[in-house]
Design a binder for these strands. Sequence first.
DNA 1: AAATTCAAGTTGTATATACAACTTTTTAAA
DNA 2: TTTAAAAAGTTGTATATACAACTTGAATTT
Lengths: 133, 133
Amino acid sequence: MKYQLKHCVGSRLRRLSRIADGHIRQILGDFKITENQMTILFTLHELGKVEQGKVGEVLCLERSTVSRNIKLLEKRNWIFRTTSYRPQIELTEQGIDLVKVLIPEWEKAMDVLVEHLREDGLQSIKNLEARLG
Amino acid sequence: MKYQLKHCVGSRLRRLSRIADGHIRQILGDFKITENQMTILFTLHELGKVEQGKVGEVLCLERSTVSRNIKLLEKRNWIFRTTSYRPQIELTEQGIDLVKVLIPEWEKAMDVLVEHLREDGLQSIKNLEARLG
DNA sequence: AAATTCAAGTTGTATATACAACTTTTTAAA
DNA sequence: TTTAAAAAGTTGTATATACAACTTGAATTT
């Protein structure tokens, strides 16, 4: 065999992302929100009012994934969506408040991850991003 | 802010694994099987007859994920499961045949990924594994 | 040996993801 | 301007994943 199973890039990256998500979920436990949804809220916090598609573009998420998440976030009154055919999305005040509470929690999770990864590990992620696109 | 959103380790690793999986899915398209299921078949090919739990242990997959995948693989007659309370799993002949066909295809995907990653990128993955566990 | 505890497996529920099919609206082409 | 093509959004279907609750058989304790 040219490669061994344990070298499989796909399953290894899948596993790594599960581990990282686990750390984030731990600090998110109390907030009834998922990592992915948190990331979308943070994105909207940075971008302000944008087209729904912009979110997927920035986070490299599939349209359908964004669509379903937006629906969930809207139901929880964290985001507002214009009714136009191609809706503009933005955080509601409740959404902004939540983001402000979540940021320090997210930073705690990042602290843990960065402590594990060190400068070297962070550079490794950058390297992978540069190489895989 | 101590960190920027774009530094979020969780979403970045999630994204990287989606990209890698995409490459693997491309070559798997014709085979009506998923990356994850393929990985389980390969694992069984290496391990021979094992307890179901062993698969999850090796691949760091949750019990319920393994349980459902095993059921799918059994339905397709690629694996055989003993009826004991804690079943032993092994590939069927059809499963072995499939693995033999899949290996060269998987190697093609690995070639593409390794070409992108280079020695440096592979080292980066190892580094992350060492640091994240 | 009976009772308790533990470990593995299964199932329910919710979200994440991919991809295909479809709708709607815009843009481009004729 | 009418038509064709493209782009964005939605929905259906299937798998992946996490976590909790439950089941069952095994191991340990009393």
